[in-house]
Write a protein that binds this DNA or RNA. Structure first.
Lengths: 140, 140
DNA sequence: TCTAATTTTAGAATAGTTATAATTTAGAAT
DNA sequence: ATTCTAAATTATAACTATTCTAAAATTAGA
């Protein structure tokens, strides 16, 4: 909590209650929330919160490398406070996004015909699968 | 061309000039166009073309496995008529999407703690890099 | 040629996100 | 403690991509 405040100060951000609430919600959160998920959560405590505040803060956090924007869901963006390199597996039925922690750095190398043209920066691996819950639901 | 028509017939789709134009534009296209890219292209020949037609046809083609929807760009969807398994590399400066043909099926395996929960369906690998053109432009 | 079903079209509607301008607040300086 | 200024929040409008709707047009088969 003090760390939270220190972290914000370091980054040249003013400490507002809304901001703290957003940060607290995100910290350690592995649910990959969308802006709306965050909005709905914060709204419980700050009913006047605006979407603009959510997006402003996400922007500030993104710029400072505290949050990653995940572009897997074609409907909306999701946010991930875990900035360690990791990958995701998405259930093709319920669309839930889960983390995959595994180092593929050796295994996944660009072929030469690509490295001749591109200076590599990084990679994301998205797996698709059916989660246990959806398997149980069976059929379709 | 005849193949095109045959292909559509097989799939239970009526053959309209707009549809043919869309299919012809997509066939063999490696530029990963967005709906608007397609719209603008078709508009040259069919000025009355509507976005609804573009989306309708993309939907029809998606359902029939002729086109894949790519969710890499957080702004909009892109479409890829190449349904062979392959991956992509995106220039982090100009956002151009390029193909990567390389088989990572052996290298990229889900760790056990994931396969216990998920029945694997597939994966996408997105690489990020800076293309030669953007490298030349230097600096920023 | 006639008809039924499908497709196209224009335009409205919706969802997610960004921009704007006024008001409020945090935090530094006094 | 009070004042001040920059930054943050808010309500709202605007914007972009996409989907929906209903009417008109077109395809393909009888």
């Amino acid at each position: 909590m003090k760390e939270l405040i220190a972290k914000y100060r370091e980054k040249g951000l003013k400490i507002t209650p809304q901001r703290l609430a957003i940060f607290k919600f995100l910290e350690g959160n592995t649910s990959h929330p969308s802006a709306e998920d965050i909005y709905r959560h914060i709204k419980k405590t700050y009913p006047a919160i605006s979407f603009a505040t959510i997006y402003n803060n996400l922007q500030a956090l993104k710029e400072r490398g505290e949050v990653l924007e995940i572009t897997i869901d074609s409907q909306k963006r999701h946010y991930d406070p875990n900035t360690e390199p990791h990958h995701h597996i998405i259930c093709t039925k319920c669309n839930k996004i889960n983390d995959v922690f595994h180092d593929y750095s050796e295994a996944v190398r660009l072929p030469n015909y690509i490295t001749e043209e591109f200076k590599p920066v990084g990679n994301h691996i998205d797996f698709y699968g059916i989660c246990r819950t959806c398997q149980k639901k069976g059929g379709r």
